[in-house]
Design a protein around this nucleic acid. Sequence first.
DNA 1: GTGGTCTAGACCACA
DNA 2: GTGGTCTAGACCACA
Lengths: 125, 125, 125, 125
Amino acid sequence: MINIDARSSKPIFEQVVDKIKESIIIGGLKPGEKMPSIRELSKMLTINPNTVSKAYAELERQRLIETISGKGTFVSANYKPKVDEDRLQKLLGVLRDAVIEAHYMGIDKNKITEIINGIYNDIER
Amino acid sequence: MINIDARSSKPIFEQVVDKIKESIIIGGLKPGEKMPSIRELSKMLTINPNTVSKAYAELERQRLIETISGKGTFVSANYKPKVDEDRLQKLLGVLRDAVIEAHYMGIDKNKITEIINGIYNDIER
Amino acid sequence: MINIDARSSKPIFEQVVDKIKESIIIGGLKPGEKMPSIRELSKMLTINPNTVSKAYAELERQRLIETISGKGTFVSANYKPKVDEDRLQKLLGVLRDAVIEAHYMGIDKNKITEIINGIYNDIER
Amino acid sequence: MINIDARSSKPIFEQVVDKIKESIIIGGLKPGEKMPSIRELSKMLTINPNTVSKAYAELERQRLIETISGKGTFVSANYKPKVDEDRLQKLLGVLRDAVIEAHYMGIDKNKITEIINGIYNDIER
DNA sequence: GTGGTCTAGACCACA
DNA sequence: GTGGTCTAGACCACA
């Protein structure tokens, strides 16, 4: 289930994008499966259809979902990982900042490793 | 040295905050050491003094630096890690999103662990 | 043979129109030849009959095919090129946009000329 | 100058994108130069700011322009052509369709070559 | 029913 | 002043 945190500084459309990406990994949404329509999802999340539309557009750009004209939106059946250099640099930056942030919270390397392991346990089966 | 990327989507004041936090960990800035004044740093980075001011305010809020009126700003000599629940949750969220993002780039758990190790090697001595 | 890409942003009926126009040029469909019925073609392509109907209507409007009531639909035997001003302007616009797009992909005039030649080799005999 | 054709089937935001791409090639907009702000351009074209915003977002995605937080949007100083396979296939498809369309308008290979030459004369100096 | 586009209007953080 | 996000509401082509 997708739950939106309106107080978060992360934009709503981005929360939707991230939650859907997570759902696909966890298996809640399966390759080829039909996504809820923009109108349906906007009602489920009580957010504006335009916001869902923006999230879907971003997911389509990343090739995670595909739109079939007049029929709806579907989880891509054949996603291929892409090694975009810019995205990689951004990821490295985010991880670096996270490690620094953790340090000032008293979280050391061992605890970070534990956390990462926990995330993988949570996501993979 | 601090280098700012004006084209980044990360706000400049946040870049300054993060770079200074990194400097303190790496040891470029030492506990008790005097920080450059707002005017000095704004000239060094060719950014607006208000932006530096905002960064310093944030660092002070986090107790990483201290301003002694009439004397200047100093790296805190006795920083104590704080485990604010909100900050912790945010960190967990960032790491989770990073792992998901990595997954779609074809970066698996082993590579993430390598990357984390690399960051610690880079930061700690 | 006609292959339809449901994921394409080009509407299916337009794909059908374009493929048939191409078939006629290449010679797969000859002047005077009987076209498959709407129902037949819709089954062959596994698309909605309404969609084929729309495509046929467009082709008939362009005088490329003719329906003889009770007998079926036929490739026009005596097509005469028309230089509709609107269509010409549209074509010029499309070509201009294509050249601009090519430019930003690092494709120069010589390569464009090669590509155009390749298309004519592919289409004409 | 950018002029919008409201009756065109090409979406307004796409017309803006294409016109700006053309302007950059022709030299009306130079690398590093400041773009009109979203509000300014929306007034100039008498279209909604959101529409301009969408166009700018697309141009930024294509790395043709860059946003500097709080300062505005600028033409990228160091654009590097990208050879995205999907974009290339789309370009080939567009050119193929254009050639077919031209054929039915009585425009042959020689005339197409003339037209292409004309476009390059118009665009390059 | 489906997604795509557009307008009008508002709010916000950043510099 | 600048761009980014979001809502409300409308219209449209496609299947």
